[in-house]
Simulated scan of single mutants.
Amino acid sequence: MTLSSSLTDRAAGALMGAFIGEALGVGPHWYYDLDELRQDHGDWIDGYTTPKPGRYHQGLKAGELSQAGLLLKLTLASLVDCGDYDEADFCWRLDHDFFPLLDGTPHAGPGGYTSQSIRDAWHKRVEEGHPWGRCGGFADTTEAIERTLAIAVRHARSPRRLAEAVAANTVLTQIDNNLVAMTVAFAAVTGLLVQGHRLDPGLSGKLMARVRTGELPFHAVTADRLQPPPSHAPEPPRAGRFASPDALLTPSYMARAAEDPAIRIEPAWKVSLVYGMPCAIYHLLPASYYLAARFHDDFEAAVLHAINGGGQNQARAMLTGTLVGAQVGLAGIPQRFIDGLAEADALLALARRLAEQLATEEN
């Protein structure tokens, strides 16, 4: 399969890839015992599944979205209606359309499970009455990535605006600076892929070029190709809030591993065992980057290997689906994944409207 040549196709592919990856994880989510996963869902999960009784998303049906997908849909609808990232509108939607459905416990609310960062924000906002801007906590998950990827797609052609908007939205619920840096880096990668670049060993160099122009808010001490700066060179200006560019370098290291014939993870779903099965962002990002580089032109292989690795496979598949969907485009996603997705027509309409907004934006 060839990479998509259309900006709007890639933008819509990234968004629908995220929704598909999220929905694929509803049934087999959070199995850390792989024998139990295989017993409940067979030797190879190849599509949407219904959760077994007693599992995290009990009550949902195959192809439906859980809470991460619903939050992405909320963010996407806000972007489409406002034509840009509007923090006041996004927060209004959380206050009026989402938080009233929660009670602060993990197993309540839409989608069958509420993540730690959303529970923390709910307690601070609803129970304690804090204003937005003082509701963020220290959960180390990819929850912010899962919703801000829509912002990354919308502002793919404006890296500075992308970084500002994604960082601002992230700190509404998660305030650890390293986590914010990794979230902004994922958004920057997504933006490049939507523009038509591939997740390959050269991608990080393109990101670092944007650091040097001040478009991405990372500080870099090293020179090109990570060489130390000459002793006579002046200290480079600080580009922004993130002290290190390392989050921008991870994708290309994973791409090098995927392309190196001497480094093989076989079968590829065992990437979850190499980088870790838990929910923390530092386990999930390397695995997602690896799968998205190795299967850059094969959406089905990428998301299914993400799912079959167990653990936090839902987030792994959601992020992988975003990155590969941005490379192959909507046209490169097998139709069966669209057909089996609940509310696919509504999600497609939102994705296409956002893609059109991106395409008509003055660069």
Rank of each mutant, 00 (worst) to 15 (best):
L79H: 13
W92L: 03
E36P: 00
V211D: 05
A68H: 11
A247E: 01
A268P: 06
V221P: 00
T320V: 09
P236L: 14
S231H: 10
R256L: 13
V80Q: 07
D89I: 02
A23Y: 04
I151H: 11
P230G: 02
L248D: 05
W132N: 09
G27H: 01
Q335P: 03
Q116E: 12
Q312K: 08
A326G: 04
E215S: 12
R210I: 03
F242A: 06
Q327V: 11
N308H: 10
A167R: 09
D81F: 06
V189C: 06
G332A: 08
S78D: 11
G63W: 05
A108W: 01
E22V: 00
G54Y: 06
H57P: 00
F99D: 01
G133C: 03
G332V: 10
A258K: 09
G69N: 10
A150W: 05
F19A: 02
P217N: 03
A163L: 07
R119K: 14
L162H: 02
K206G: 04
G83N: 11
Q312P: 00
A188P: 00
A287R: 03
H305W: 09
S158E: 14
P131A: 05
K61Y: 00
D46C: 11
L101Y: 09
K52E: 14
L37F: 03
Y282N: 13
D297S: 14
D33K: 07
F299A: 06
S252G: 03
F242K: 04
H29W: 01
A150C: 10
S78W: 01
G69W: 02
L354H: 12
H107W: 04
D35F: 04
D200Y: 02
I145Y: 00
G309A: 04
A306R: 06
D224A: 15
V153F: 03
F19D: 02
I338N: 05
Q335R: 15
T8E: 13
E36V: 13
N177A: 08
M208N: 11
R10I: 08
F138L: 15
L226F: 12
A152C: 03
P159V: 03
